[in-house]
């Protein structure tokens, strides 16, 4: 019993890790396609702007342009027919001091926006799994 349970757990971990997102555009469509991503990005940018913690970093940023860039980026990441032509994540965030708490705050705001857009939790996490590794380029303060 004991051994079998451990083996099962290991199999679950090994089977699931690495198998992040299958190729294809399933997630793109689950997120509502291009239109859904545009709504999500606009909602998310509004929330980020209004947030006490991370909002100041968005002062003077063209919201329309930013949300279009984010929609493009998400679209490309999730297998949609888009080309993200914005800067890499390191350059895009380089001038702002961002610590891990800031990063998590932004994750929460994105979750709020996804909730508001009525996206199922499992779909939300598939997108977050693609975005989370970006912390390596975005978090620039200890």
């Amino acid at each position: 019993m004991k051994r079998r349970l451990i083996a099962l757990t290991l199999a679950a971990v090994l089977g699931a890790a690495g198998a992040a997102e299958p190729a294809g555009d399933a997630l793109f469509h689950a997120l509502g396609g291009r239109a859904g991503l545009e709504r999500l990005a606009a909602d998310f940018v509004d929330r980020a702007n209004a947030d006490a913690r991370v909002g100041p970093a968005f002062d003077g940023v063209n919201r329309k342009h930013l949300s279009r860039q984010i929609a493009d980026h998400f679209c490309q990441l999730t297998g949609g027919p888009c080309v993200y032509d914005g800067g890499n994540m390191k350059d895009a965030h380089g001038e702002t001091r961002i610590d891990k708490g800031d990063f998590y705050r932004v994750v929460e705001l994105l979750q709020d926006a996804m909730d508001h857009q009525g996206l199922p939790f499992a779909v939300q996490n598939r997108l977050l799994a693609l975005l989370a590794p970006m912390h390596r380029d975005i978090i620039n303060a200890p």
Binding site: V13, A16, A129
Partner: peptide, 13 residues
């Protein structure tokens, strides 16, 4: 501990 985020599963050993 590992959170398998895309699967919404957390595993600990």
């Amino acid at each position: 501990t590992k959170l398998l985020l895309a699967q919404s599963v957390l595993v600990n050993a």
